[in-house]
Write a protein that binds this DNA or RNA. Structure first.
Length: 438
RNA sequence: CGGAGUGUGGCUCAGUCUGGUAGAGCACCGCGUUCGGGACGCGGGGGUCGCAGGUUCGAAUCCUGCCACUCCGACCA
């Protein structure tokens, strides 16, 4: 992608509305534009990152056995009356009336609709277990939206719903998602810690929040330091392995403010392992049994021939929020430092003298070879001042910067900089390309 | 929803107290000089001063109402 033909509206100064660093950097890097309180347009650079995160979240769901579908953003009020949540949800739910005076709502979550879909088609225990998910925009009319995409009113969420014949198998489904989330956040370059959580309005007795540790997190969290460094569990785990992954982590203390018990923390955790920090919630999983299936008559027939309400769980990941969370966890004075897996581009090729044919030819060769190797390349072919090019490259946080200029080219070298470390090396173009494509 | 605050070119802000021809920096356009870590000179375009009423010879400025946005608190992917 040539920068001269791209749409990358960089700002030198952060708009004064933005209070926290991820919001400021997303605005400055031309990733989003605010359209209303808590409602954002996703500009090309932001959309690229959003899509990469979405893809990773999707792939890990599929690997864990979940099946993707797509439900609409608008739902009928009557469906929510069946579960009793139409009245219970309150003013956070955006309610809409169509031309026929039918009551609709912009979905804040999808338990009712997925239960409706399930009950319409699934009648037998033989179809279970089943886990359905979608990645769709949600709307919650927050009292106070803030922090950019971290607490927007409109936000992109992955929500999965599991269906099982009984509680024992539902708990296995829960643990499968628990492990899938550990894998997901590890791939995103995040250290996310599962913490016991309040089940809130969704109800049920088994729930964990996944918290990214960051200084600007919204809530205070307490956990065993060992949890932060645990490796991702990997895929295709047996039930025994799932139990092991789950037990190993839940044996260690981890709780958010509202669940925190200081005396238990001290009893359970050696002093040197006690970590108190701030965190950002990026995922939340629940087992809630038959709360919705009973209310909405989502029954399946068991081997004994009797109908019984299906056991359900729901599993959410705040996809759009993750951009903010990642930036909060990974930035410096120069701007964003994207983890390789979610970076909008793999490498930016910086042409220091676009008017110089030899330099441009070398750049174009580099771009062609990198793209042939499957890399996403941003080619800065503009006439902008060189200093501004470096500042821009740092700001948007692309992992590698390949700089080609007339002086270096005369000596047969280019410069390769690693954004995360600031480390620079001079080497031949071929050597740089080999390094970038290996 | 309670409390506090802000709306002036794309962005950051001055001007409002004390009414009198709308400003600066950055960004943008043109020409030139430059060119290896956010250049410089000259010229230029762009603003119903959030909206609606009111007071006044005259309103960005004073008054009233409304709207939007931000911050602090109680709720949440």
């Amino acid at each position: 992608m040539r920068l001269s033909r791209y749409f990358l509206p960089i700002l030198k100064e952060a708009p004064s509305d933005a209070q926290i660093v991820s919001h400021q950097l997303m605005l400055r890097a031309g990733m989003i534009k605010q359209e209303a309180a808590g409602i954002y347009a996703w500009l090309p650079l932001g959309l690229r990152v959003l899509r990469k995160i979405e893809t990773i979240v999707r792939e890990e769901q599929v690997k864990a056995g979940a099946v993707e579908l797509l439900m609409p953003t608008l739902q009928l009020a009557d469906l929510w009356r069946e579960s009793g949540r139409y009245d219970a949800y309150g003013p956070e739910m955006l309610r809409i009336t169509d031309r026929h005076e039918r009551e609709l709502l912009y979905g804040p979550t999808n338990e009712e609709m997925i239960t409706d879909i399930f009950r319409g088609f699934v009648k037998s225990y033989k179809s279970l277990p089943l886990n359905l998910f979608h990645i769709q925009w949600k709307f919650r009319d927050e009292r106070r939206p803030r922090f950019g995409v971290m607490r927007g009113r409109e936000f992109l969420m992955k929500d999965a719903y599991s269906f099982d014949i009984d509680e024992a198998s539902a708990r296995i489904a829960y643990k499968r998602m628990f492990a899938a989330y550990l894998n997901t956040f590890a791939r995103l370059g995040l250290k996310a810690v599962p913490m016991r959580a309040d089940t809130g309005p969704i109800g049920g007795d088994l729930s964990h929040e996944f918290i990214v540790l960051a200084e600007t997190g919204e809530s205070e969290v307490f956990c065993d330091r060992k949890l932060v460094e645990m490796a991702a569990p990997g895929h295709n785990l047996s039930v025994e392995q799932l139990e092991g992954v789950f037990n190993e982590r839940t044996a260690l203390y981890a709780a958010t403010e509202e669940m925190h018990d200081a005396s238990q923390f001290e009893a359970q955790t050696a002093e040197g392992d006690r970590l108190s920090a701030r965190g950002i919630e990026v995922g939340h999983i629940f087992y809630f049994g038959t709360k919705y299936s009973a209310a909405m008559k989502a029954n399946v027939q068991g081997p004994d021939g009797k109908d019984a309400p299906v056991h359900m769980g729901s599993y959410g990941v705040g996809v759009s929020r993750l951009l903010g969370a990642i930036i909060e966890a990974s930035h410096d004075a120069g701007g964003i430092i994207w983890p390789d897996a979610v970076a909008p581009f793999d490498v930016v090729v910086i042409n220091l003298r676009a008017s110089d044919e030899a330099v441009s030819a070398a750049c174009e060769e580099a771009v062609a070879k990198l793209e042939a190797a499957g890399k996403d390349v941003l080619y800065d072919d503009t006439d902008e001042r060189p200093g501004g090019k470096f500042a821009t490259a740092d700001l948007i946080g692309v992992p590698w910067q390949l700089t080609v200029g007339p002086k270096g080219l005369a000596d047969g070298v280019v410069e390769l900089k690693r954004r995360a470390t600031g480390e620079k090396q001079s080497l031949s173009l071929d050597a740089a390309l080999e390094l970038l494509t290996k």
